[in-house]
């Protein structure tokens, strides 16, 4: 597809790469948001597991684990997340919680699935003083991903909004800059079009940029050439008219003389002279015609290009050009 508008072209050149860059940036920020949400969730899981593990104690020789409410409530962020946990003794005996909840490798959190819900799991082993063979206990806490996903969305959406605003503002500035940048071109157009420009004098566009200057200079140089050519043509026509004036005066004088003369031989003489004059005039016209083909449009330098000189008289006459 060809775009003929300079505005659209420049806009495309600025905005399309910007959109590409913004897309890459959004993908990166999505990854960052995910990492951040994972980290936050893991910290909460760790905090929760520690709180549960700290409560495990041996009372009356029996290892007992109770779940402090805070360990569960810290996940209540309004996103209706479910929290699953279990506490097991070293031998694998379940002390409390959901027996079929999978475990995560030591000191790491993993994504897992429980009861068809994806969730994030963390397992912590904790030594309990006085528990003997039951120590260390393992505490596993898992949470569904609603709060996690909401956090990713929030983080990503804010990044998305910023980038969108950036692209829009950039586009707006491109348009604004173009409008200002193209203004001299518009002025140039108006100056060339202007109805009171009958003469081909140079166009002056104040405030034109250095990139547009050559165009204006070229235009002015072109008009100068056209003007010079027109002037040469005008001069040629004026000269040609001058060339014809004296022979025409001669013809008319000879004709008048012949008309008034009564003597047959004198009249005959005048008529013969008149015929010769008219023949010379015809040759002069022919010469002018030939010259007109060569002269006004010709780019070849001539020895005397603006003042053609022809002989209108055969005997010792001087050229008649150059009347003041």
């Amino acid at each position: 597809m060809r775009i003929n508008s300079l505005r659209l072209q420049l806009l495309a050149w600025v905005v399309l790469p910007l959109v590409g860059l913004a897309t890459i940036n959004l993908w990166t920020s999505h990854r960052n948001a995910l990492t951040t949400a994972d980290l936050v969730t893991d910290r909460m899981l760790m905090g929760s597991a520690r709180a549960i593990a700290e409560r495990a104690a041996v009372t009356d020789g029996v290892l007992d684990a109770t779940i402090p409410p805070a360990a569960i409530e810290m996940f209540d962020t309004g996103d209706r997340d479910s929290v699953y946990y279990h506490v097991k003794a070293a031998g694998g005996r379940l002390l409390t919680g959901y027996p079929d909840l999978p475990e995560a490798p030591e000191h790491a959190s993993v994504g897992a699935s429980y009861r068809d819900h994806p969730l994030r799991l963390l397992t912590l082993s904790h030594a309990v003083i006085g528990a003997g063979a039951d120590s260390p206990i393992t505490v596993t806490v898992g949470v569904t991903l609603a709060g996690h996903d909401a956090m990713v969305r929030r983080l990503w959406l804010s990044a998305f909004t910023q980038q969108l605003a950036l692209v829009a503002i950039a586009g707006l500035f491109v348009l604004l800059g173009l409008h200002r940048g193209l203004a001299p071109l518009i002025r140039l157009r108006d100056a060339v079009r202007s109805p009171n420009r009958s003469e081909l004098d140079p166009v002056e566009v104040p405030g034109a940029q250095s990139e547009i200057r050559p165009l204006i200079d070229a235009l002015n140089a072109y008009m100068e050439r056209v003007r010079a050519q027109m002037a040469a043509q005008r001069r040629f026509i004026a000269n040609a008219a001058h060339q014809l004036r004296t022979p025409l005066a001669l013809l008319s004088t000879q004709a008048s003389y012949a008309l008034r003369e009564n003597a047959a031989d004198a009249r005959q003489e005048a008529l013969v002279a008149l015929q010769a004059s008219s023949g010379r005039l015809a040759r002069l016209a022919e010469q002018l015609l030939t010259l007109s083909r060569a002269e006004p449009g010709s780019r070849r330098p001539r020895a005397d290009s603006d003042r053609p000189q022809y002989r209108s008289r055969p005997r010792g006459g001087r050229p008649r050009a150059g009347h003041r």
Partner: peptide
């Protein structure tokens, strides 16, 4: 008049 021919014929006509 430096154009001799025109001068001659003008002269003749005026002498008429």
């Amino acid at each position: 008049e430096d154009n001799r021919e025109l001068a001659d014929w003008l002269g003749k006509t005026l002498r008429q």
